[in-house]
Simulated scan of single mutants.
Amino acid sequence: MSELLGVAVLGAGHMGADHVRRLDRAVSGARVAAVADPDTDRAEEAAAGIDGVSVHAEATAALDAPGVQAVLIASPGPAHEEALLAAFARGLPVLCEKPMVPESAGALRIVEAEARLGRRLTQVGFMRRYDAEYQRLKSLLDSGRLGRPLMLHCTHRNVSSPAHFTTAMLVNSSVSHEIDAARWLLDQELTAVTVLRPHPSSNAPDGLLDPQLVLFETSEGALVDVEIFVNSGFGYQVRCEAVCESGSARIGDEHTMVVTSADGAREEVAQDYLIRFADAYDREVRAWVDATREGRVTGPSAWDGYAASAVAEAGVRAQESGGRVTVELAPRPELYARVTR
């Protein structure tokens, strides 16, 4: 493909607007051909200053807009299934932000629909796979230099949660990143989950049971624990330590700017995921554009999106029951045995 890849961006909120900017200014080989959002004023604002872009209230209208050859879905999760099926019907390659589909039943319908096509069209936006530190850890674990992985210790902290955030979202929105990262790093499925809760932080809104400790078991006997704390009050922190038979490796220790003044020395702490993972998002979208222009689909698959939703659902049941909940996955279609990780 010699011309620029024309991309329709569905959703012009915080994430969607950032992807519009990224495609227009940071990623070569692509252009924003259309933007869709029910709030057309927001869509117009995201598309402002971009030549040749059309703005739509309906997602299907954006998919049918002139010059659209691929679609980036950044709308709210409940809208993803319909948008994905519409893209499949048009044969359009898709980069879909997580969750692919929040409910595992809907996510499985996407897997089955894509399997019927006989080819992959979907890459799911688990951007940690494109973070330089995570990629180094993955390479180290794959090399076997530290022996068999025994445990992953993960930390995921946010400054504060938005007003609509629920206790279930600690797992199915925030910890979903660790779910995919653990599956990818270990190349194992997560088979059971237990959720433990301390007394809620006084910083948490009324009714939000924050923080929590989520414990996953894997198909090959490893353990993964995740501290999720979405109202830490001080910064956005993501860390992961792999403990193996012959050593350990940790990523996520901040190496940021240190400001020194008369008040002393202060190390900056990222306040937002778009800051901490800005380079990972750039790498992710760049890889998707490059592969799409070559007629390929790589990266996290629809199966990965389904598995993450199924594990997250089990995690929410564990939150509610206070007990250990097993994860049940449907049979994996042959199409996804050929996934390029």
Rank of each mutant, 00 (worst) to 15 (best):
V285L: 12
G144Y: 05
E114T: 10
G235P: 09
S174H: 03
G106F: 01
A30P: 12
E220S: 07
L117N: 01
D272K: 15
S2G: 05
D187W: 00
G106V: 09
C96H: 14
S219N: 03
R42C: 00
S201V: 02
G264Y: 13
E114I: 11
A47C: 06
P211R: 00
F277H: 13
V327C: 06
G207R: 03
S28A: 11
A89I: 15
L335V: 14
H255A: 11
C154E: 12
G221S: 01
A70K: 00
T298I: 10
V111Q: 04
A204W: 02
R293I: 12
D279S: 12
R332F: 14
Q212V: 02
E103N: 08
A26I: 10
G235W: 02
R21I: 01
T122C: 11
E97I: 11
Y134N: 04
R283K: 14
L63E: 07
A62K: 07
A312Q: 01
L209K: 07
A222I: 05
P76D: 11
E133A: 07
Y281A: 04
E58W: 15
A270V: 05
M151E: 10
A280G: 06
G315K: 04
W184P: 00
G207I: 06
S232L: 02
D279Q: 08
V230P: 00
I228T: 05
R293Y: 10
R250A: 10
K98W: 09
T167Q: 00
P198T: 04
G144F: 02
G52V: 08
A74N: 09
C154D: 06
V195S: 00
G91T: 10
P200E: 04
A33H: 11
T191S: 04
F216I: 04
A168D: 03
L85Q: 15
P198Q: 06
A62N: 11
K138F: 08
M257A: 08
G247Y: 14
R22M: 05
L213A: 05
A318C: 10
G91D: 15
L213W: 05
G16K: 00
G323C: 11
E112A: 04
T191A: 04
S104I: 07
F126H: 14
T167H: 01
E189F: 02
